[in-house]
Structures are given as structure tokens and as C-alpha cells.
Design a protein around this nucleic acid. Structure first.
Length: 428
RNA sequence: GGAGGAGUGGCAGAGUGGUCGAAUGCGCCGGUUUGCUAAAUCGGUGAUGGGGUCAUUCCCAUCCGCAGGUUCGAAUCCUGUCUCCUCCGCCA
């Protein structure tokens, strides 16, 4: 969330930003509420001060009568304070509700536009899409022919959008995890495995809505826990409430988790196979950084994603995400879209990773701060996240790009140490 | 799952109703002293929010895991909750 004072001081810029993002917020109401709240706050503090003064004088009262009289005065002041406090809290709560709906500001260079049509391609990967010379199969067909994925089994046991990986499909999943984790470790990331559940309060801090009709997450009944949609949630929660020493930043973390998504409202965008599933494994990058480091860390995350997909020999393009497609917390976001030969009529790009600089938008809710030695006070850190490998979508790209005329799949060299073979299939 | 115990400033650790934002020690910052280092010694040293001077400053409110309650007044008493430790049971 944005700082309330910032919103008031930069009302025009915030309003413009909301417009660019296609979000409507009751900014005028917020301004009104906040000015009323400030007044109440001053009143509360003044009453408190008076009451404290009276309380202090009671111990020094010279007679029982005077003591009783002072007590009565104290009671009266506290009562008045409580009333003012209640008013203040109501104003504060309503202001907060609006404040939470205001999206982060956007980077000056982020393309302006209300949806993904305005996304700007900024670069392409090392490898160009390969001319197959035969009619490409999609990963669903490949997975079925080579006995790598069982969608029906997933639907029977759990529901549509769930699946079993089988045989070499499992080896691919594990290999992709190993590949990403090894690369990140070599680049100074602290690798972690993370809880698949998190408190609702943490989800909110990251910018997810844990409950309610619009929610994208599964919640656990009779608890304040939800299944995480990404390790970004748990990695961001890891240091909630923490104050970092500036010299310890940036802190780069890599987290392995399962990701659970209801995909509510995605019915119209339904797609086959692994592309939009309710559960997948993801290797996530996350960073806590100083404000003046976050632009560079975003570029670094993007470069790592590029290196990972270049290393797999997969063609892709990078897009600079338009304001309307950023989501609430992001200040700037790059998506990697991998070439998927089996998609559409003759292949299409499909999003495989995404990296965002959320500046202090998440940190404010999570109360993550930093302190500079020798300086007074603390400031909010910046948070960034990026997908190293979302296994399900990476598998689509690996399978479809590696397919050969005989129906087999060439395993990318980088994955062979873990898959243990050069080619998957074909099945006799 | 059962029974106990504990959560205080960067750390250790006092504090069981008012003078406590909180002793003391360590650490940290600055001064003095000393060929250098070390030691000694003196002083300073939390955060958040609000207000006035809008300049270095000053004033106020809040904060002792978190949320409530009792009271004129709570680190201190009560309730709930989270976390940690010990013992027992169970278990991959």
C-alpha cells in the first residue's frame, strides 16, 4: 500500500496513476477522512495528556477528598478520550480500506496502457523458434503419447486443473528444480524451501486477498491459513516486522514451493493442459533491497530469467508490462514469454516467468524496514520477486520446443545430468 | 494431544500498581589520556506517530510478543492469542 501522507501530498500524480492502471479509487473521500482523522488524533492526544497529568497528581494529593475529586476528573477525561479514540479509529479504518485499493505508482518508463495489449517487447532470447518441418504437437498430446502426464487421473482424484506427472515427466520436474536452484545458489541466493500455507495477514501484506468472492487462493476452513499462490508470499512474510541493517542488503532469497491458485474468473481464458493449473511447483526469487538498489535488482532478476531460458535453449521474448497489467503492488514488471510451438495454430508466445519491483508497497504493510548505521530512524525497504522456473509452464516449453518428428522429446543439455537421458521416447 | 515455564531496548538481564521509556552490564557513537594497538576514563546512545519553529532544536502521544479488560493510573493484575523452552504421549 502507498503511504497515506504521500497520497495526500501527490494527489494529482496518484490520480493519474490510477487512471493509467484502470483502477478507480475514492481518493477525494480518502482526503476528507484523513483530514478528519488528523483532527481527532490531535484531540485524543490532548485528552490523553490531560488525563496523564491528573493521574500523576493523584499520588501527591494532600487529602482523601482531593484525591477523590481528582479521580473523578481523571475518569471524565479518560471517558472523553475513549470516545474521541473510537471516532478516530472508525475514520482510520475507513481510510485504510480506501488506501488499500490504491495501486503502487508506476515507473516512468513503464508503457502506459490499460491492458496487456500495451505491453512492450524489449528483447528476444538467444534462440530463435526452430522450424520443425512437421506439424507440432502440443504438450498435452506429447504428454499423453509419451505417458508423462495424466490429466484425467488428476481430475478424478481432485478436480479439473490437477494432474499427475509420470515417468520422465517426474524427472523433468525434478531436473528443472535442480537446474534453477543450482544456478541461483551460484549467484549468491540463499536457497530455501518454504511453507505451502501462510497466515491471511501475510497474504494481505503481499497484496493478495485471502477471502471473499474475488479471491485467487484456497483458504483452510476454521483457521487463518491459506494455501500460498506463490513463495513470494512466504518469502515476503519471512522478514515481516523486521528491521534490516542497510549493509545486509540486498538480501536475495530463492524459495521452492508449491503454488495453489483457484483461477476464479479465469474461465473465459481457459487453456489446455499445464498452462493454467490449480497446483504447480515454482522456484521463486525474492529480494529485500535498499530503495536505490531495486531498479538494478529488477534488471538482475530479469537477466537471470533470460539466462535460465537461454540455457534451456528455449526461444522467448521479454516484455515490459503496461501500467494496466501490472497488478496492484508492482512498480515495474518484466514478463518472459516462451515460444510454445503447440499453442494456437502455428505456435504462440506464452508467459513463463515474471519479475516485479514492488518498491515499498509490500514493505509498508509487512512493516519491513532498514536502518543505516549512525543515522536516526528507519525507512521501508523495497521488495522484488521473480520467477526462476514455474515448472508446469517451463515443461510446456521444454516439451514442445524439444519435440522431434518421431514424437520423441530432446532433453535440453542443461537438464541431462538430472534427467539421466538425452531423449524421452518415442514409445513403441 | 496432555502438564508446566517463559516472552522487556542491538544483545544479556533487572523491574510485581504511580516518580519506568524502563536499572545494570555488554555492544555502539563521540571526547580525554597513552609511541601505535589495547586498556582506562567521561559523555551520549530505541522506535512510530502528531504538533509548533518549518534550520541544528523543542513539545506531546503511543510502544515492555500481539489483542482486549480492570483501574484515575498497568511492563507489573485479569482474559484471549501467538511464539519459544522443559517433561509425558503419539508419529513420518
Amino acid at each position: 500500500m502507498l503511504d497515506r501522507k504521500y497520497i495526500l501530498d501527490h494527489l494529482d500524480a496518484v490520480r493519474t496513476n490510477c487512471g493509467n492502471r484502470g483502477v478507480s479509487c475514492e481518493l477525494d473521500r480518502l482526503v476528507e477522512l484523513e483530514s478528519q482523522r488528523r483532527e481527532k488524533l490531535v484531540a485524543v492526544q490532548e485528552l490523553n495528556r490531560q488525563a496523564n497529568e491528573v493521574s500523576k497528581s493523584i499520588g501527591k494529593a494532600s487529602s482523601p477528598e482531593e484525591r477523590e475529586q481528582r479521580k473523578e476528573e481523571g475518569r471524565r477525561l479518560r471517558e472523553a478520550k475513549d470516545k474521541a479514540q473510537t471516532d478516530h479509529d472508525a475514520l482510520d479504518a475507513e481510510a485504510l480500506t480506501i488506501q488499500k485499493t490504491v495501486p503502487n505508482m508506476a515507473h516512468d518508463a513503464a508503457p502506459v496502457g490499460v491492458d496487456d495489449k500495451a505491453n512492450l517487447e524489449v528483447r528476444k532470447g538467444k534462440h530463435a523458434p526452430r522450424a520443425l518441418g512437421f506439424k507440432a504437437k502440443d504438450h498435452v498430446e506429447l504428454g499423453q503419447d509419451l505417458d508423462l502426464i495424466d490429466f484425467e487421473g488428476g481430475a478424478r482424484t481432485t478436480g479439473a486443473g490437477f494432474y499427475f506427472l509420470k515417468n520422465e515427466g517426474v524427472l523433468l520436474e525434478l531436473a528443472l528444480q535442480q537446474y534453477a536452484v543450482q544456478q541461483l545458489r551460484a549467484r549468491g541466493f540463499t536457497v530455501t524451501t518454504t511453507p505451502d500455507l501462510a497466515r491471511d495477514e501475510i497474504l494481505e501484506g503481499i497484496g493478495f486477498m485471502p477471502r471473499g468472492p474475488e479471491t485467487q487462493v484456497y483458504s483452510i476452513a476454521e483457521s487463518d491459513l491459506s494455501l500460498v499462490g506463490t513463495a513470494e508470499i512466504t518469502l515476503g512474510g519471512l522478514y515481516s516486522g523486521h528491521t534490516f541493517e542497510s549493509e545486509d542488503l540486498p538480501l536475495k532469497l530463492c524459495g521452492i514451493s508449491h503454488c495453489y491458485r483457484t483461477e476464479a474468473g479465469a474461465a473465459g481464458r481457459a487453456s489446455k493442459g499445464l498452462y493454467r493449473v490449480h497446483q504447480f511447483t515454482k522456484i521463486e526469487m525474492f529480494a529485500y533491497s535498499l530503495p536505490d538498489q531495486s531498479d538494478a535488482v529488477l534488471e538482475e532478476f530479469c537477466q537471470i530469467e533470460c539466462d535460465l531460458f537461454d540455457g534451456l535453449g528455449i526461444p522467448y521474448r521479454v516484455v515490459d508490462t503496461a501500467t494496466g497489467d501490472l497488478g496492484g503492488p508492482a512498480y515495474r514488471k518484466y514478463d518472459l514469454e516462451a515460444w510454445m510451438p503447440g499453442r494456437g495454430d502455428a505456435g504462440e508466445y506464452g508467459e513463463v516467468t515474471s519479475t516485479s519491483n514492488c518498491t515499498d508497497y509490500q514493505a509498508r504493510r509487512l512493516n519491513c524496514r532498514y536502518k543505516v548505521k549512525g543515522e536516526k530512524g528507519t525507512k521501508f525497504i523495497h521488495t522484488l520477486n521473480g520467477t526462476a522456473v514455474a515448472v508446469s509452464r517451463a515443461m510446456i516449453a521444454v516439451m514442445e520446443n524439444g519435440q522431434q518428428a518421431d514424437g520423441s522429446i530432446v532433453v535440453p543439455e542443461a537438464l541431462r545430468p538430472w534427467v539421466g537421458m538425452d531423449v524421452i521416447g518415442p514409445k513403441a
